[in-house]
Simulated scan of single mutants.
Amino acid sequence: MNKLLNKVKQIKWHIWLRDLGILGAIFVAISVWQSRDMLDIDSHLLLKDQLLVSMDGQTNTILKADKPTLIYFFAPWCKICSLSIGNLEYLDTNKLNIVRIALDYTNVEEVQDFADKHNISSQILLGHKGIKQQFKIQGYPTYYILDQQQKVLAKSYGYSTALGLKLRQVFSG
């Protein structure tokens, strides 16, 4: 009887692992499909002289030369952005610069309301159609990790958990 119970448990364990593998494969396939029109991994951008204005009126460059940069593109009306922007707080800023860029906003007050609602004290840059086109932004949120030479190390579109962002940080840096 014990052998039969062990065999049943083993079969259930194998079924559970199979189902988990299928779910993982589906998740990867969806992620690849969603990011098909984004910039290619290992492609290079020309951003050195690109300046964007922050919400406080300061002019800033997108990339810093000291470490890789995660660029998070969002729209203040985006519900998924509302759910995901807080996950950026879990990343190690000693190893990664984080740049938040607002796009498709009506006015600065709309972006400020979004920042206040989500307790974002970090700087937010105000993007424009040119930067949206340069990064091939099709929807929100869109993430890119770029190295110091402006090479795309990682990309993602849609909701990312704090764990997913940390894994991208580990594997890209």
Rank of each mutant, 00 (worst) to 15 (best):
M1T: 07
M1V: 02
K3Q: 08
K3W: 02
L4T: 09
N6H: 07
K7D: 00
V8C: 01
K9I: 04
Q10P: 01
I11Y: 11
H14N: 04
H14V: 08
I15D: 03
W16V: 13
W16T: 00
R18D: 03
L20M: 14
G21A: 03
I22D: 11
I22E: 05
L23A: 06
L23N: 05
G24D: 10
G24K: 12
A25N: 09
I26V: 12
I26L: 10
V28M: 02
V28W: 13
A29L: 12
Q34L: 01
R36W: 13
R36F: 08
D37P: 04
M38D: 11
L39C: 08
D40S: 12
I41C: 10
I41Q: 13
S43D: 02
S43V: 04
K48T: 15
D49R: 06
Q50S: 09
L52R: 13
D56L: 07
D56S: 12
D56F: 11
G57I: 13
G57C: 14
N60R: 15
N60H: 15
N60A: 13
T61R: 14
I62V: 15
I62F: 00
L63H: 05
L63K: 01
K64C: 02
D66P: 01
P68F: 09
P68V: 10
P68W: 01
T69G: 10
L70R: 09
I71Q: 01
Y72Q: 08
F74N: 10
P76R: 13
P76T: 04
W77Q: 15
W77V: 06
W77G: 11
C78A: 05
L83D: 00
L83W: 02
L83K: 13
S84Y: 07
S84R: 01
I85R: 11
G86H: 10
L88T: 14
L88C: 12
L88K: 14
L88A: 14
E89P: 03
E89T: 14
E89L: 10
L91T: 14
L91D: 15
D92R: 03
D92N: 12
K95Y: 01
N97I: 10
I98H: 10
I101H: 05
A102P: 02
A102W: 00
T106I: 15
V108P: 04
Q112V: 12
D113I: 08
D113Q: 04
A115S: 13
A115R: 08
A115T: 09
D116E: 00
H118W: 11
N119L: 12
N119V: 07
I120A: 03
S121K: 15
S122L: 02
S122T: 11
S122N: 07
S122F: 03
I124P: 08
L125F: 00
G127E: 00
G127L: 08
K129C: 06
G130Y: 10
I131G: 02
I131C: 01
I131R: 06
Q133M: 06
Q133Y: 08
Q134F: 05
F135W: 07
K136S: 05
I137Y: 11
Y140C: 12
L146V: 06
D147P: 05
D147Q: 05
Q148D: 01
L153G: 10
A154S: 13
Y157F: 08
Y157L: 11
T161P: 12
T161G: 15
A162Q: 15
L163C: 04
G164I: 04
L165S: 08
K166E: 06
R168Y: 10
R168K: 11
F171W: 04
F171P: 01
S172Y: 08
S172H: 08
